[in-house]
């Protein structure tokens, strides 16, 4: 059976969670992988919690369900930690990647009792410094693919430059690479 990785991206409306799952999936397609990536559509508004998903496998697969038990959760907005059960459904021993600029110990303590690999990167700071705006969606993908190795960074930067032409794309690539280096 195909080795499938289910990724859930938790963000807030307007932060680009949907774009993030799409570009992650496009990068995987570029590598010849198989994907099913989609947003969770509901009555979303700017600022309200939203989720999007990417199901990725090197082999063809048939599943067409929503993602209830992700292997990986990416948290784009640190304020979600107190508002939303971001680890809901996370598989035992799964991975959490959080946009977080505090101490790692504090973050680990937040997830006390959760059996998971916890990573953080200061996504908002990186996005603000490198892109000029606090839009850390693609930044978080840089951190994700460092720790989960779903796609090569070259594939991610390629689809990013394809989606965002010119300076914006280049700035995002710089930010992705920085997150890739700085995730801990």
């Amino acid at each position: 059976m195909a080795e499938i990785t289910d990724v859930r991206i938790n963000g807030r409306g307007g932060q680009g969670a949907v774009t993030a799952s799409r570009l992650l999936a496009e990068a995987a397609i570029l590598e010849g992988q198989y994907v099913h990536a989609f947003p969770n559509f509901g009555p979303e508004r700017a600022g309200a919690p939203v989720t999007s998903y990417a199901r990725i496998s090197p082999e063809p697969f048939y599943e067409k369900t929503e993602v209830y038990e992700p292997h990986i959760v990416v948290v784009i907005d640190p304020t979600l930690l107190d508002d939303v059960p971001v680890v809901e459904g996370l598989r035992d021993g799964g991975t959490i990647v959080v946009n977080y600029d505090g101490e790692k110990d504090t973050l680990v303590k937040h997830f006390e009792g959760v059996h998971a690999n916890i990573y953080k990167v200061a996504g908002s700071i990186i996005a603000t410094e490198e892109i000029g705006r606090n839009v850390p969606n693609l930044v978080m993908l840089g951190a994700l693919i460092k720790v989960a190795k779903l796609v090569e960074i070259e594939s991610l930067t390629k689809v990013t430059l394809n989606r965002f032409k010119g300076v914006l794309g280049e700035k995002n690539v710089v930010a992705i690479k920085r997150a890739f280096e700085e995730v801990e």
């Binding site: 799952s21 799409r22 999936a25 496009e26 397609i29 198989y34 994907v35 099913h36 990536a37 989609f38 947003p39 559509f41 067409k64 369900t65 929503e66």
Partner: peptide, 10 residues
Amino acid sequence: GFIVTHALER
């Protein structure tokens, strides 16, 4: 709707 119409696939 959505699970196919709005889902990205190859």
